[in-house]
Computed example of a mutant assay.
Amino acid sequence: MAWLDGALDIGAVRQAWRGVCLSHDVLRRAYVSPDEACTYDDVLGEVEFYTADSDMEALETVRTVTTPFDLADVGLSRLAIVQRDERRHLLAIVLDHIIVDEKTWKRFMADFGVFYERATRGASVPDKVEKNAYHDFTLLERRELSSAWGAQRRAFWRSQTERFGTFPPPFPITFESEGESRLTVVTHALPADTKARVSDIAKRARATSFVTVASAVLSGLQQVSGAPTVGATTPYHGRVLPGTSDIAGLFVQMVPLHLAAGSRSPLETVREVFSHTLDVFEYILPLRSAGRLWNEELVSTDRAAGVNVVLDKRTVDLGESLLPGTTAEIVYLYVPGEVTWPRTIQFRWELDGTDPQAVVSYNENYFPSDIVESLIQAADKFLLSADN
């Protein structure tokens, strides 16, 4: 969602969004069952237009179009515009996560801007599906999963399941929920040179900065829990088949990282996690659908990941000029249905800028705060201790 300042052509917005939907079949997709989908020839929804007398009224109006999607219903995308005056509009783009990840979002927005510019000058906007359809990807994936390529990955993930248990990795200490989920966010300040320290460890371990912070969390998790093996997850915005990098609609996947018990230095820990990460990313698959195809129990569908780790600041980039002739200002608004991860501790390391920090989100009515604080302190010590 963003405020758009400048002249906005509503008719061109409608044409542009229609062009995006016709260019990417995943926006015209509906799910008949967990294993079956159909794609419509025409778009599944029009741009909704409203007016408001105040910014607050505009925000409240948008809440009516940001309600959760029903996968049994038709249409997994919505777009609405609320006009405040001739040069100020609130734009809301609502997409279900089952059809969009970071790369898909960027592709949608790039096309949206290009099609809008075409429409404002009277040029043609796509009226049919381009090549590289999501449907083509699903057929390719099914074929590859049944080939030698798939057999290699099946053997790898079967071995992972035998060694670490089904994915996702659980939190190694069992807790009981105490009432409704209550999200708590802890912002933990880090020394100004934390990024340099992380980069130095990564360089000496011949690994990556992400693996270094993930190793800190895994090491801390092992120290706090005393478990022989611990695991975490991280989102993977990638493409697992050749020739599919430009296909929109391959949704984000979660991948597991593990650390087995053993006496080792921080550098050795980073190297071990990096080695495991290389294998995981080499053989990454949408494990739920792959497991069904192979009749393998690879994913525990009723278990949340115990810890999730990312190295970035979560932002949605609409650009300064998403639609030519306007400037965009992002608006953040909690909406019903937003993921709250009630049984997952989320670690987000933000190391860029002058004030690096670790942002830790968790359900205070499930995870005891002293356990979370101990985990944060242990991860800090791993990264910042002088004996690295």
Score class of each variant (00 low, 15 high):
residue 263 S to A: 13
residue 363 N to L: 04
residue 361 S to T: 13
residue 201 I to C: 06
residue 322 L to G: 06
residue 353 G to N: 09
residue 185 V to Y: 03
residue 385 S to W: 02
residue 368 P to V: 06
residue 55 D to F: 03
residue 344 T to H: 03
residue 109 M to L: 15
residue 145 L to M: 15
residue 86 E to Y: 01
residue 213 V to M: 04
residue 78 R to F: 13
residue 71 L to D: 02
residue 89 H to G: 02
residue 305 A to Q: 07
residue 181 S to H: 12
residue 129 V to R: 05
residue 316 V to Y: 09
residue 8 L to E: 06
residue 368 P to S: 11
residue 123 A to H: 06
residue 62 V to E: 08
residue 136 D to Y: 12
residue 216 A to Q: 01
residue 100 V to C: 15
residue 187 T to H: 05
residue 32 V to L: 15
residue 132 N to M: 12
residue 308 N to G: 12
residue 183 L to Y: 01
residue 381 K to W: 10
residue 103 K to L: 15
residue 169 P to I: 08
residue 111 D to H: 12
residue 348 R to V: 08
residue 89 H to Y: 14
residue 126 P to G: 07
residue 143 R to Q: 14
residue 276 H to V: 00
residue 240 V to P: 00
residue 55 D to C: 04
residue 53 D to T: 06
residue 370 D to R: 12
residue 30 A to C: 11
residue 236 Y to M: 07
residue 145 L to Y: 12
residue 145 L to N: 13
residue 256 P to W: 12
residue 332 Y to R: 12
residue 18 R to V: 02
residue 108 F to R: 02
residue 306 G to I: 10
residue 85 D to H: 09
residue 218 L to W: 06
residue 176 E to F: 01
residue 238 G to V: 03
residue 210 F to I: 03
residue 278 L to S: 09
residue 171 F to H: 15
residue 307 V to L: 01
residue 237 H to D: 15
residue 274 F to K: 04
residue 102 E to K: 00
residue 19 G to I: 08
residue 288 R to Q: 15
residue 103 K to T: 14
residue 379 A to L: 08
residue 70 D to A: 13
residue 153 R to V: 08
residue 51 T to E: 15
residue 172 P to V: 04
residue 121 R to A: 03
residue 191 P to T: 05
residue 263 S to T: 13
residue 197 R to H: 10
residue 161 T to P: 02
residue 205 A to G: 02
residue 38 C to T: 11
residue 198 V to N: 05
residue 259 L to G: 00
residue 297 E to K: 07
residue 4 L to I: 05
residue 145 L to H: 10
residue 39 T to S: 02
residue 115 F to V: 05
residue 278 L to I: 12
residue 241 L to H: 13
residue 45 G to Q: 12
residue 49 F to G: 00
residue 16 A to T: 02
residue 105 W to D: 05
residue 73 D to C: 06
residue 16 A to L: 01
residue 163 R to M: 09
residue 197 R to V: 03
residue 267 L to W: 01
residue 377 Q to C: 04
residue 180 E to S: 10
residue 221 L to W: 04
residue 283 Y to A: 06
residue 104 T to R: 01
residue 8 L to S: 05
residue 67 T to L: 13
residue 261 A to K: 07
residue 155 A to I: 11
residue 385 S to E: 12
residue 10 I to P: 00
residue 338 E to T: 10
residue 25 D to P: 09
residue 172 P to D: 08
residue 215 S to R: 04
residue 295 N to R: 11
residue 235 P to N: 07
residue 142 R to M: 10
residue 274 F to Q: 10
residue 80 A to C: 11
residue 384 L to M: 07
residue 354 T to K: 07
residue 142 R to A: 13
residue 165 G to P: 04
residue 174 T to A: 15
residue 105 W to K: 08
residue 140 L to M: 15
residue 234 T to K: 02
residue 297 E to H: 11
residue 373 E to A: 15
residue 208 T to N: 09
residue 190 L to T: 04
residue 33 S to K: 09
residue 59 L to M: 13
residue 177 S to M: 11
residue 36 E to C: 02
residue 159 S to M: 09
residue 188 H to N: 14
residue 358 A to T: 11
residue 367 F to E: 09
residue 257 L to K: 02
residue 132 N to T: 07
residue 34 P to A: 12
residue 238 G to R: 06
residue 313 K to W: 09
residue 264 R to A: 12
residue 131 K to A: 14
residue 176 E to I: 03
residue 307 V to M: 01
